[in-house]
Amino acid sequence: MSKKSVIGVFDDENRVVSAIKKLKENKVKINDVYGPFASHDILSLVTKPTRLPHLAFIFGAVAAILTFLFVYYTSVINYPLSYGGKPTFSFPPMVVIIYLITILGTATLTVFAFIGRTAMYPGKKAKMPGIGAMDDKFFVVIDQKNTVADVESLMRNSGAIEIRHEEF
C-alpha cells in the first residue's frame, strides 16, 4: 500500500531530532523515521508507549476463563469419570491445565497481535525510503494528506538536505 508521502532526508542525527521536535510542535503526524542506527532520542520522540502488556493481560484472562470452562465441560458435564475417588469437579488438577494453556495462549496471541499491529510477518520485504537509510542518512516520512502547508520549509530550516515527494 503506497501512499503519497513527503520525505525529508537528513544527514545528521541532531538535526533530525530538532526537525522532529519542530514538526511535533506544529502538530504534524510523522509516519516513521528511518535511519542507519537506533537512537533513543528519535525513538522516544516518535514512538508511543506500548499497550501490548494490557492486551497480554486480557488474552491471559480470557484464556484462563475459556480453559476453565473447557476443562469443566470435559470432566464434569460430558465425561464424568470417577478417578481415584475424587469428586468429578475438583479444582487442583484443573489448575495445572489452566496455568499451561494460559501461558501458551497469552504468548502466542500476544505475538500475533504484535505482528498484526506492526504489519510484520515472515518473508515481508523491508521498506526502504532510500539507499542511504542503511548508510548515513535519516529519512522522515510524512503522509501527504497529513501535511500542513509549511512542512517542507520546517524541515528545510532544521537542516534537511533534500525533500522528496514519492509514493511510499
Binding site: G84, G85, K86, P92, P93, V95, V96
Partner: peptide, 12 residues
Amino acid sequence: WFVQFLIIWYAN
C-alpha cells in the same frame, strides 16, 4: 506451594 499441595492432594 501448589506443587507440594497438588502432589499430596492427588496421591491421597
